[in-house]
């Protein structure tokens, strides 16, 4: 891995929730720019927690212990001095279940732009285009967003994030509720998007991890077990536990 190309640097990250359900134990991980980095493993392994640290959504929950360092380029993400709002505009996030806001399709995109103070009518079309949704919704932009199908909603959520032109896109099982065709469309979009963005993806299956990963990190019970380029990790895992999970022996 080329050291100059790191987008996010995580060093010795430790996280505990107050109820002790899920935590991260001493994670060190470098996430390269312009690639899809997949974070996978069985449930409760700390994948979502890690994503939520990267754009500080964890601020909203009961975290009793948070140590270590996370850098986005040169920005100290965890520092209390960091402007969280600005950070979240650089690091967008798409959730497991599509969360369209209770507004029209168009407003779902323009809401983010308005609060960011961006006036650029072109971004609406561009972002929907990039999320492979424009053709399907261009004639019904004023319809309520909930009238879209699940797959369309998820792509709308992706478009909403893209409209803000972030540098990093975090996706937490973005296709878990989608049919194979929609899933394929989202994955296709991601492959196209990695030219311009840094993508961190928590896939909903090992198969998806193997399909999409440029780099893959295997998480088990809060520990980073193995981190390698995708083609290596899935064909020749170094750790027995990784091999067992990839081959479907547990999970």
């Amino acid at each position: 891995m080329n050291k100059n190309n790191q987008k996010i640097t995580i060093q010795n990250l430790i996280l505990h929730y107050s109820d002790g359900t899920e935590s991260l134990q001493d994670i060190s991980l470098d996430i390269p720019a312009h690639a899809i980095t997949v974070i996978f493993g069985p449930a409760g392994g700390g994948k979502s927690s890690l994503l939520r640290v990267l754009n500080r959504l964890n601020d909203l929950v009961d975290v009793v212990k948070l140590e270590g360092e996370v850098y986005l380029d040169d920005l100290d993400v965890l520092s209390p001095k960091t402007d969280v709002i600005a950070l979240r505009r650089r690091v967008g996030m798409v959730f497991a279940r599509p969360v369209v806001l209770p507004m029209s399709i168009q407003e779902n995109i323009t809401y983010g732009l308005e609060i960011a103070g961006i006036k650029d009518d072109q971004r609406l079309e561009d972002s929907l285009e990039k999320a492979a949704l424009w053709e399907e919704v261009k004639d019904r932009l004023d319809d309520p967003a909930v009238t879209l199908s699940g797959g369309q909603q998820q792509r709308l959520c992706l478009a909403r994030v893209l409209a803000l032109e972030p540098e990093v896109i975090l996706l937490d099982e973005p296709t878990s509720g989608l049919d194979p065709i929609s899933t394929g469309k989202v994955e296709e979009s991601l492959q196209a998007l990695k030219e311009d963005y840094t993508i961190v993806l928590v896939p909903h299956s090992v198969q998806q991890a193997a399909r999409t990963a440029d780099y893959a990190a295997f998480f088990l019970q809060g520990k980073l077990i193995e981190y390698a380029p995708g083609n290596l990790l899935f064909t020749n895992p170094q750790d027995q536990r990784t091999q067992d999970y990839v081959e479907g022996r547990f999970g």
Partner: peptide, 10 residues
């Protein structure tokens, strides 16, 4: 809903 809104920088 809140998470989604906050996550895009609101």
């Amino acid at each position: 809903y809140r998470d989604a809104s906050l996550a895009i920088g609101a």
